[in-house]
Each structure stands twice: as structure tokens, then as C-alpha cells.
Amino acid sequence: MAPPQRYAVLVEVRLRPGIADPQGATIERALPAIGIDGVSGVRAGKAFRFEIEADDEAAALARGTEVADRVLANPVIEEATVTVAGRVTV
């Protein structure tokens, strides 16, 4: 059997819709002060990048999603998007 591959995973965590995001709102309000207009809907969040061992891309997505849902995001207030960015070549 072939050894598991390693995949690059990106997890983006942000507050759920409807949860107040004072950080995003503050950034949005600050932008016009430096002459940047027309930006709306700013939501602040966190991004995590890691490599994970998996047999294929679908398995990498499943494992990355488990990491996101069980640790990286608090489902009470946050949601996560998981993207597999590709296989890591050594």
C-alpha cells in the first residue's frame, strides 16, 4: 500500500451570521479615514494553515473538517470553511 500523502489545508474561521462582530465593524468604519470608500460587510476572522496526512484529497478534506469543527471553531458563535490547497510534494 502506498504511504499516505500530505495535503495542505486552509481553515478559515469567522463569526456566524447574526453574531455581532465589533472588530469587523471597527475596521469597516476606519477605512474611509484613509480615503478607502465603498467597503462593506467586513467580517474579522482567523485563518489556519496546516499539512495533514491522508490517502487522497477527499480524505484530507474530511480530516481537516474534523480539526476545524472540533477544535479551531466554537460552533456556538463561529463557523469554518475548509479548503484543501493541494498535495504537498517533498
Binding site: 453574531i19 471597527t26 466554537n74 456556538v76 458563535i77
Partner: peptide, 17 residues
Amino acid sequence: LTEAGLLPGALQKNRGL
């Protein structure tokens, strides 16, 4: 205690940061 699931809900950043 909330993160451990022993109490419901979560504590988020204060209103107005």
C-alpha cells in the same frame, strides 16, 4: 467551562471591543 461543554453558550468579545 463553556468550551468544555459543562455549561452552555460562549463568551465572546465585549460589545464595542
